[in-house]
Design a protein around this nucleic acid. Structure first.
Lengths: 137, 137
DNA sequence: ATAAATGCAAATGCTTTGCATTGCC
DNA sequence: GGCAATGCAAAGCATTTGCATTTAT
């Protein structure tokens, strides 16, 4: 997924390409799993009068189009990421960094999730917590 | 894990066994992955003057002792459960029910989480989202 | 031109905190 | 009796909402 894909999808939906929205999308590519607050902080450097509401509205819109994902694990505040292909996360409790991990095992995992067909799984997430390579002394 | 184990552990820690705390522990066993609000609602039937603060304080205490777990996935409000052996969850988006799933695959999953030893994994969670058997038409 | 998006501020909802009172050990 | 825990209310945060103004199309 790249910026053009997202911009095109927004056009298809008849949504307006405001500079604020474009900037938020760019920041989602630049920053690693940012919170809304983090995005807002970066935003006001270019758009001093930007509002948190715009950040939240845009993130919600991207989520609803399936272009971004909200990560609710751990912190009080959500982290966001561009909806790339399936992957998992490692959350470092020391530095707070979130690392993407390759998702292999998807199939056997889904077999458990669906209870061998009884449940319908729309999505799933795997989150690890601990210390990353740098922070483990 | 049973009630006695928890009560004994609290005694060991020199914590007071107030009737409110005991009741909250019992409710965690009775209810399925309740929220703090759900526990509070059940509590005031026996303790009409109980406060939400007590519920939150007790849940925090149980969490810190490793006796309960907080599930932050999905909803705005956290769900809680007694810290039983490793298992995963299926969250139904229709009825809101959370189902426990057996956690097999732990070892290969942890191999991914630790990045083959580079990271130190303290805990992890697997959450599935979709429709449970009853809610899928 | 016009309807959608922004910015601002107020509101909401969950959770935490401060503090006087209560009650477990 | 002493100190931790409770209940109550207020405060804190993240997020949402209402509405007048701005702006992309």
């Amino acid at each position: 997924m790249n910026k053009d894909t997202i911009v095109n999808r927004m056009k298809e939906e008849g949504l307006r390409l405001t500079p604020q929205r474009v900037q938020i999308v760019e920041l989602l590519f630049e920053l690693s799993h940012p919170t809304a607050e983090r995005i807002y902080a970066a935003m006001i450097e270019k758009f001093p009068y930007a509002s948190q509401a715009t950040v939240y509205n845009t993130l919600k819109m991207l989520k609803e189009l399936g272009l971004a994902r909200e990560l609710s694990a751990g912190d009080k505040s959500s982290h966001y990421e561009i909806a790339e292909s399936e992957h998992w996360h490692f959350n470092c409790r020391a530095c707070g960094e979130i690392f993407d991990l390759e998702a292999n095992l998807s199939e056997p995992l889904l077999a458990v999730g669906t209870q061998r067909g009884a449940f319908q799984v729309d999505s799933y997430q795997v989150e690890f917590y601990g210390l990353c390579a740098k922070c483990r002394v």
